[in-house]
């Protein structure tokens, strides 16, 4: 117990469930995750079987010689897990992080893509 307390001197970042939009377009699924303050170095995306886990650490530099007057947000870790169906082409998953917004693109597996069937004149 005492050891545990000593470890806590560097407290873990508070965890947040980031706001997320999930939407479908013709080419596949697009997931938008709000991750303000997270840079490329602080982001990790792991795919384990059907679980896609997104983690982002937002650590803001301290304002030097300044005192906080009003605080509504702070350092934190964004964690969110998505379950992926078989209809997703895993090899084709792409992620872009821009302006604190993470966009995940999950293309549909080729067999599920809408396709036109040619009619052969017989």
């Amino acid at each position: 117990m005492t050891n545990d307390l000593e470890k806590k001197t560097t407290p873990a970042l508070p965890r947040f469930r980031p706001n997320t939009d999930v939407l479908e377009r013709e080419d596949g699924f697009h997931i938008f995750v709000d991750m303000p303050g997270v840079g490329k170095d602080g982001l990790s995306i792991d795919l384990r079987e059907n679980e896609l886990e997104v983690r982002g650490r937002a650590v803001y530099p301290r304002e030097e010689n300044a005192k906080a007057l009003h605080v509504e947000f702070g350092d934190g870790e964004y964690v969110r897990t998505f379950t992926i169906s078989d209809g997703v082409d895993r090899e084709g998953i792409r992620a872009t992080l821009k302006k604190g917004l993470l966009e995940l693109f999950l293309p549909k597996a080729a067999r599920l893509k809408p396709r036109r069937i040619e009619i052969q004149a017989g």
């Binding site: 303000p36 303050g37 300044a66 917004l101």
Partner: peptide
């Protein structure tokens, strides 16, 4: 936050 010479306003507006 406020320092001696400045007022610093930060805001999280992603995307």
């Amino acid at each position: 936050s406020e320092s001696e010479g400045e007022i610093i306003v930060t805001s999280e507006i992603p995307g």
